[in-house]
Amino acid sequence: MAEIPIQRKKKPLSPWLLVALAALALTLGAYWYLRPAPADEPAPPATEAPAALPPAAPTDSLAPPDTAAAVPNAAPDARTTQGQLLLLVSELVTLADRADLRDDPAVREQRDNLTSATARLADGDAQASLRPGLVAAANLLRAMQQRAYPALDEAAARLVQQAGQLSGRDEAGAEQQQNHAFLQAAGALLQAENLPPAS
């Protein structure tokens, strides 16, 4: 009356397939937990420079190179120190973006520092100090010199030292004279670095 057939056992899943699935799961899990958090990604362009900037390293900025925070909203007034600095910034940023310079980490960092340090000036903030921008400009020129113009080492070092002695104010005649001298020296160094490297 009763009947009980038997059958061949079904082939179990290949252990290698299980290993592959486990590896895939581990990979996905690792990716999920180790992927960059949104906070680690580059921040949107800064619209405002920090209120106080350290003299040697004016500020740090994660702004991508093309944000050009310091690009003046209106044409800078070349008769004022602030306007001259902004014109210098524009020239420096253009130079720092040159193909042989833009990939240098130090140049990129100093370029970002400069645009951040002069952001308030570019926004027309009359209370903004000139000093961070002046120091950052000297540091960027120094970085580009170290990258491609070893012959200009002395001039660049002198410019950085000169920037460190500036007060950042532009009211008194002596201060204006110091600023003017610095901008002249910076312009000369910029002109020299605008030439193709010797090698």
């Binding site: 009947e3 009980i4 057939p5 038997i6 059958q7 061949r8 056992k9």
Partner: peptide
Amino acid sequence: RLRDLPDFEVADGYPDVR
């Protein structure tokens, strides 16, 4: 004995009466 046939089992849909 079924236990001596490791590649076999009671067919699907039938009871293992052990």
